[in-house]
């Protein structure tokens, strides 16, 4: 019992942060699956969603602010794809990636300009910011609801992908871009849909993440974004269940490492882990094997 009481806070924190990484990681993995593009701006979208949360509550009541943040992020994600990636659809893949890096810096510097470089405190959302006690460990409610909400959203997403027409189109596009275009699938609308879903999940993730860790600064998206990316690669980039499981594993391991007193190495561990996975299983846990098409 003592063992559980001592270690529960770490595991709770790990599951919670893992769920938040998972919501970001899905955005990375879906975009990669369909466009073969690593969307470097995704972590910064997450930060912008957090920042918008800070400003939105000063403009409108909370029950309007949360939907507003989500819609704003979705529109932003859609517009970024439209303005920065779509014109480069037939350009070499490297150009699109550089465009993504450009968007990432644009968002960061925009946030720096708007906030004046100071950290903004995320608003307190009633109920989910209050504290509860779970088996003797005191924590915020958001810690407990994050994994539940994450899994619910992932199940919904899987239904969307496997049972609906747009989902079928997404699967087809991710399998073979050119052929699905020949078969009459509207590639552009499928890609827009992918960005909309990714941004939606990032916005939900940002509400949960910043309710728990309340400082929003222009670089706040960098570290969670990077770790979510590692999670996506770890699970096998392109695979949604892989990204979710990868994110939970990274979140939990990271916190257990900190709990063991090796705090200095917690980030080093995450990235060392990535290297080992890439050496042992280059396609990740659930990744598809690369088939060279001739």
């Amino acid at each position: 019992m003592d063992f559980i009481r001592d270690n529960l806070p770490y595991i709770l924190a790990g599951i919670s942060v893992g769920g938040q990484y998972a919501l970001i990681a899905i955005g990375y993995t879906m975009v990669y699956g369909i466009l073969r593009l690593i969307n470097f701006a995704h972590g910064d979208m997450f930060m912008i969603a957090g920042l918008m949360g800070v400003y939105a509550v000063t403009w409108m009541p909370l029950y309007l602010a949360i939907p507003f943040v989500i819609i704003f992020t979705v529109v932003l994600g859609f517009l970024i794809e439209r303005a920065a990636y779509r014109p480069l659809r037939n350009a070499p893949r490297m150009s699109v990636m550089i465009s993504a890096i450009g968007v990432s810096y644009l968002l960061q510097n925009l946030a720096l300009y708007v906030t004046g470089g100071l950290t903004k405190t995320y608003p307190t959302i009633p109920w989910i910011s209050s504290t509860i006690t779970v088996f003797g460990a005191t924590t915020k409610v958001v810690t407990v609801i994050t994994p539940i909400l994450t899994i619910a959203l992932v199940v919904l997403l899987m239904i969307l992908i496997h049972k609906t027409k747009i989902g079928m189109a997404m699967r087809a596009v991710s399998r073979d871009f050119e052929t699905s275009r020949l078969m009459g699938i509207q590639i552009d609308s499928v890609i827009s849909m992918t960005f909309i879903i990714g941004s939606f999940l990032a916005a939900v993730g940002s509400i949960l993440y910043f309710s728990n860790y309340t400082g929003v600064m222009p670089t706040a998206g960098a570290m969670p974004g990077l770790k979510a990316f590692v999670a996506a690669v770890f699970g096998g980039i392109g695979s949604i269940p892989g990204a979710v499981i990868g994110a939970f594993i990274i979140g939990i391991c990271e916190n257990i490492i900190k709990g063991m007193g090796l705090t200095t190495f917690s980030d080093a561990f995450t990235f060392a882990f990535l290297i080992i996975i890439l050496i042992v299983r280059p396609s990740g846990l659930f990744g598809e094997k690369n088939i060279d098409k001739v």
Partner: peptide, 20 residues
């Protein structure tokens, strides 16, 4: 004595370590 890396915003485990 413990340290946290740059860019870290999750202090849950550090607070838990102090309590432990």
């Amino acid at each position: 004595y413990e340290t946290f890396p740059d860019g870290n915003s999750d202090f849950t485990s550090y607070v838990a370590n102090a309590a432990k």
